[in-house]
Design a protein around this nucleic acid. Structure first.
Lengths: 341, 341
DNA sequence: GCGCTTGCATGAATCGTTTCAGTGACGCAA
DNA sequence: TTGCGTCACTGAAACGATTCATGCAAGCGC
């Protein structure tokens, strides 16, 4: 590979000093019209591309924000990423999107990588339930924002969605449809998500003075379609099959839906089904899925905004915020068409 | 933010020279056991993290490969990315995943970003039909591998899947089921993908001496679920409704499926449906979707391998390759259950 | 004509690594 | 003792940009 052309080559070609070339690139207003044109011509002629590494070596930090999500196979996170990306790029920053796949050791590796890269900041949905990875990361003094997790006030910024409210919405909807007992299908209960959504559902039952045991609980080890199928199988094996099922995310709901279908059980006629996240495929399923919509894009956008604020020029003025967004129920056919409740 | 601790601070703390610290990190075998321990202790004590930017400034290139995909909302590309990522990380490289969202200008911006970053190489599914972006990129002498596109031999590496064969498989399957006329639902025909899959389907018809007009064609402007719904509506409006539909990707098929369902038309009883890509949700739909599986993970893996080869130490020995993988039909219920054809 | 400001351009210092030619120290053979 | 090779370490020169104190010239008011 031929030697990269540097700012020096441009300077020589244009007959000016390196400082001037730098000014043409970064503060063109300091340079006379004439010189600027000459330098620009040299740049174009030589095909000069400035080296980010040299730039950031001098600046002390890069112009990249990293984003580490739990599961890229889940369209929900892709949406979040899209929101964050749009915001960051509007501010002239690049985004490095990575997938921890819920594996704490992957997460740790990525966080080291980010530290070495001196990224501007990190948007992260933590995978490590112990918090050890983040604690180690905090010591490096790299700003980060928790996404889809809420942080203790003051420790760092966080953007999340009110999962208790979401669980409440879902349960309310099913109860409105006339069901008096629900089954909650969740991932591992060490995830705050799964816990909070259940809490919300219980609250909804309580509001109507229904007993707590009107909520059956099926817990599976992951939050994907496969696990949903497993949950569906266990659901079918119950002595009294429930008529209303609330899943902790849409992927689980898909799995359940499929298991029910395979057993010849009609949705919504025999069983009403509610998912969570309202991913694109929820609407696109053959039986469109009622789901609790999380403002995913907005969550990403907000997280990026907070990070930019924290790492901006007036960073000292920054105080950590804990943003909680509200979910919203999207009723579709999997819980009975609105017109025939 | 406190000043970053550098290799110099470590050297001072350990009472050795900077060169020695560097050796401890990069070539520990050159350093005596004792010194190594002392330096390591200093590193841990000070929480030293080496600066990638300085490192790559010296090295002339970074340890990051970029990946630019067409549509991150399509799980197929997420799979490809996963394959590439695994391979790259195994080789100690970071992956920067970006989404051009099929927008040539986004693509151009990202390619500039990559050039400035001096990335090791780029895996790209081009969005720009004119090829201008890539041509500009080639001048920068940054290696790249085409993904899900085949390149003219010798120009660069490429990994793709045989789309003609895929189309043939899909059509064959439907014809095997007894259908004698097919409808092909595709995205824009300027995409080689869409063209080739049609070509394959036509070949299948020809093999059975069916006329070319046994293949109706519905073209929609994008390859997503919405576009699929539109195609479904147009399909329903046809004077003679087809009994067999082949979609250029699973997202389109989902849209069609939904439109059919909404119109009370049963799949597979009234209409048989085949998708393409075999994304995870294909199996998870309430009517599991027959689909042409592309070896997505393997494609990503192979692309990354080729790139590593091209950018490795023996790069001079590298000759551009054009890898074509074979697709595979996965029969599910949307074309009639195997047991009751 | 003198001192001032203003506008432009200069070039050296700097960022944090890696690398490489040198420097000692030590052991061993002649 | 000298010469030589090895081993462990040193210190300075890159890498390619940004920044800043500095210089120079022209313009202006007095």
């Amino acid at each position: 590979m031929a030697r990269m052309v540097g700012i020096k080559d441009v300077a020589r070609q244009a007959g000016v000093s390196v400082g001037t070339v730098s000014n043409v690139i970064n503060r063109p207003d300091l340079v006379s019209e004439q010189t600027r044109a000459r330098v620009q011509a040299a740049i174009d002629l030589l095909g000069f591309v400035r080296s980010e590494s040299a730039r950031q070596l001098r600046a002390g930090r890069s112009r990249i924000v990293a984003m580490l999500v739990l599961d890229m196979a889940n369209p929900f996170f892709v949406q979040v990423a899209r929101g964050a990306e749009r915001e960051a790029r509007a501010a002239g920053l690049g985004v490095m999107l990575c997938n921890s796949a819920q594996d704490p050791s992957e997460e740790a590796e990525y966080l080291s990588l980010f530290a070495e890269q001196r990224v501007r900041g990190v948007l992260v949905t933590p995978a490590d339930p112990t918090g050890a990875n983040l604690a180690a990361f905090r010591r490096r003094e790299i700003p980060f924002v928790l996404v889809d997790r809420s942080a203790p006030v003051g420790e760092c910024c966080s953007v999340s969605v009110d999962d208790v409210a979401g669980g409440h919405l879902a349960a309310d909807h099913l109860l409105d449809k006339g069901h008096t007992a629900l089954t909650y299908v969740s991932g591992p209960m060490h995830l705050a998500q799964c816990r909070d959504r259940r809490t919300g559902a219980l609250a909804a039952l309580k509001d109507r003075e229904l007993p707590e045991d009107a909520l059956t609980h099926i817990e599976v080890p992951r939050l994907d379609v496969d696990a949903g199928r497993e949950a569906g199988a266990r659901l079918l094996a119950l002595s009294r099959r429930p008529t209303a099922v609330f899943c902790a995310n849409d992927l689980l709901a898909f799995g359940v839906l499929q298991a029910l279908y395979a057993a010849g059980i009609a949705v919504p006629e025999d069983v009403a089904l509610v998912g969570y996240d309202d991913i694109e495929f929820a609407a696109a399923a053959a039986v469109p899925l009622t789901s609790v919509r999380q403002p995913a894009v907005e969550m990403g956008r907000t997280a990026a905004t907070l990070l930019l604020e924290e790492t901006g020029d007036d960073a000292d003025a920054h105080i950590h915020q804990r943003v909680v967004l509200q979910p919203e129920l999207v009723a579709r056919e999997s819980t009975g068409h609105p017109s025939r409740p």
